[in-house]
């Protein structure tokens, strides 16, 4: 320890590392406290539901185009790629299963979540951050209006409500895209495409778990988005870096959570 003073190169490095870790943990604690406070003060957002509906318009309705178009193209690519691989084993009729299962279980929630994070999450962060930078939040506090109840909670609930609906539309659109390419373009038998899909997609195991995934992603993405916005430095630079952090953190959170949820949901059947 006494050497710490002499080997000047190591100590500041360790100090900085420690500082960074402490700051992260402090932020995590603050984020959790913020989450709890937000849930406790959601009463206004749910009672004056008009506030939430307005935010659903901005978060959900305006993400509709990107979600639907991406879903269609993802499904079409799955159709092409899946057919290419499956026909080598002479089982091109299983294309429906491949498209439906990969969309409903994984791609629907995950890709819709990533798109939602970059389309709606970043917008939420920027909006709240700018409100903070232009001192609108401080003004609300002056007027004894709780900004978390009035500004943050409606956006959070709007995100949580929108995300599963967007993911469901993404999956449905993707399956339609796979159908277009597989059945209409390539000529896989239509009856086999749908009946094999229906035989192996389970409502509880696959679809419900996909919906649960998308709800979890919705909570994670909007939580990160509102927190980053609320926590942003009230400057132009602070808002821009908070927006970047929202997209990066929520993308990582989606992928990590997806792994955990998949491990919990889809490997149980074989292990038991």
């Amino acid at each position: 320890m006494a050497e710490g003073g002499r080997t000047g190169g190591v100590a500041p490095l360790l100090e900085r590392l420690g500082g960074a870790v402490t700051a992260r943990i402090w932020r995590l604690g603050f984020a959790s406290r913020f989450f709890g406070y937000m849930l406790l003060h959601s009463g206004t957002a749910l009672r004056r539901f008009q506030l939430t509906i307005r935010e659903i318009y901005f978060a959900g309705v305006q993400s509709l185009i990107i979600i639907l178009v991406s879903g269609l193209f993802v499904g079409m690519v799955l159709g092409l790629q899946g057919y290419d691989t499956l026909q080598r084993y002479g089982s091109s009729e299983a294309l429906g299963i491949l498209v439906a299962l990969s969309l409903v279980r994984e791609l629907g929630p995950v890709v819709a979540g990533l798109l939602f994070a970059s389309r709606a999450g970043s917008a939420i962060t920027a909006e709240i951050g700018l409100m903070k930078a232009t001192e609108q939040i401080a003004a609300m506090e002056m007027m004894a209006v709780d900004p978390i109840a009035r500004v943050v909670a409606p956006r959070f609930w709007a995100g949580v409500i929108s995300m599963p609906l967007l993911a469901a539309m993404f999956s449905a659109m993707g399956i339609f895209g796979g159908y277009l390419v597989g059945v209409k373009l390539i000529g896989v038998d239509e009856g086999a495409f749908w009946s094999q899909m229906q035989a192996s997609v389970d409502v509880r195991e696959d679809i419900l778990n996909g919906v649960i995934k998308s709800i979890v992603f919705g909570v994670a993405v909007t939580w990160i988005a509102v927190f980053e916005g609320y926590d942003a430095q009230p400057t132009a630079e602070g808002v821009s870096s908070a927006t970047t952090r929202t997209v990066v953190t929520s993308s990582l959170a989606i992928l990590a959570l997806d792994f955990v949820l998949t491990a919990l949901m889809f490997t149980g059947g074989n292990a038991r």
């Binding site: 318009y57 309705v61 929108s162 609906l165 469901a168 539309m169 999956s171």
Partner: peptide, 9 residues
């Protein structure tokens, strides 16, 4: 939007 979401589900 909500109707379309439920239609998808």
């Amino acid at each position: 939007f909500v109707a379309a979401g439920f239609a998808g589900l």
